[in-house]
Amino acid sequence: MPPPSQLTIPASPNTVQVSIIDTTTTIDFPADRFLAPKIDGLERVKGNAFSFLVENPRTGGKVVFDLGIRKDWENLAKPLHERLKTVFQIEVEKDVAEILRENGVGLEEVEAIIWSHWHFDHIGDPSTFPGSTSLVVGPGMPAAKLPPYPEDPAGHLLESDFRGRQLIEITPDKFTTRIGGFGAHDYFGDGSFYLLDVPGHAVGHMCGLARTTPDTFILMAADTCHHGGEFRPSSYQPLPDEIVPNPYNDQTTPPCPCHIFEKIHPSPEKYRTEPFYRIRVNEGGTSTAPNVEVAMQSIRHLQEFDAADNVLVVCAHDATLVGIVDVFPAKANHWKSAGWMERGRWRFLRDWDVGYADKKP
């Protein structure tokens, strides 16, 4: 079934060069912190953290979308660090600034850091960039999360994140275009790169939509989802009878039969058309998402992008794409001809032990 509405991405001949950055982050966390219900004993999720270098060849402008986790994450705001270390297992080898420098990108060339949102695993360490690099944030973030720590003893952000640089808020009135179910802001003003207002997960949560050819796009989906099973399968992108490549051995033959997942789906009668997971809501109604209903609506809109054959969806912590996508310093604009979508779409299924006899040893 096709999406119920067109994505209505405005036409443009202008593209950006996109690189997917492996931020050298490994983050291990309890699955039930974000996901419900528990399925087949998947107790913990081991994720990564993608960020993106976006280059506009017409203006020469370069921006970085997200920074992963800072290498010295023990220097996060003290109250935040104390909470994090009781929940997450974190390893970080390098800051994004270091990765860029090692690969010939001068930090003075980066005109802006764009935070998808203010959570610790996306903000990195802006202080590693020069003051000429502005910091771009989503609607409502400054009012909700400033002043920073230590001025606010309970703050999550650091004064050093903002010191000496321009802070730019993409306010609600700047999302003047509608793409799919989201408001969109034309960042460069030429149709090559949009910021999308994707609410629910956090105040000011944004995604990036980059035009990689005149007719293909990469959606930088940030934390709209934390696992492929939160938005796949869907009525727009059903689980096929036979899954190729086989998610368990990455081979095109033999294909993996889809029926083996029926028994672990929370709604077996809908296992081909409804996601395996929903956002976890704790007893008492608390959740990692401040507005679960709105966050679930954003996921439904994300499914429309995922069903489009010209949009590659890359969630920030989707480790199943590691080994499939080319990472910085390589470019990602050739993603469609390289078959990354087909190779990666169902790879999350390997997270569950369903007793499948043809799994790779």
Rank of each mutant, 00 (worst) to 15 (best):
I218H: 00
K336E: 12
R278W: 03
R211H: 09
H265N: 09
A222K: 01
D326Y: 01
R211V: 06
M341P: 02
F231P: 05
A308H: 15
C315R: 01
V325Y: 07
A289W: 10
V311P: 08
S234F: 04
C256W: 01
I243P: 06
W335N: 06
H227S: 14
S298R: 03
H227M: 14
D223W: 02
E304C: 14
M220E: 11
Q237R: 15
L302W: 06
A338W: 02
T216N: 12
M341N: 12
E283H: 15
A295S: 11
A295D: 05
K336F: 02
A338F: 02
L302D: 10
H227R: 00
P214A: 05
I299V: 11
H317K: 05
V244Q: 09
T286P: 02
D241M: 07
G284Q: 01
E242Y: 12
P257R: 00
R278K: 13
H317M: 08
D309V: 01
M296G: 09
L321A: 09
R232Y: 13
R280W: 00
L321F: 14
A338I: 00
C258Q: 10
A210T: 01
A332G: 07
P240W: 04
P240Y: 05
Q303F: 02
P238G: 03
Q237S: 15
G229E: 05
M206T: 10
A210Y: 04
F217N: 00
Y236L: 12
P275V: 07
V327N: 10
S287Y: 11
P329F: 07
N249R: 13
A289Y: 14
P329V: 05
P257Q: 05
W335H: 06
H226V: 07
V203K: 12
S234H: 13
D326L: 07
H334V: 11
S234I: 05
V281L: 02
H201S: 12
Q237A: 14
T273Y: 01
V311D: 06
H227C: 11
T216E: 09
F261I: 07
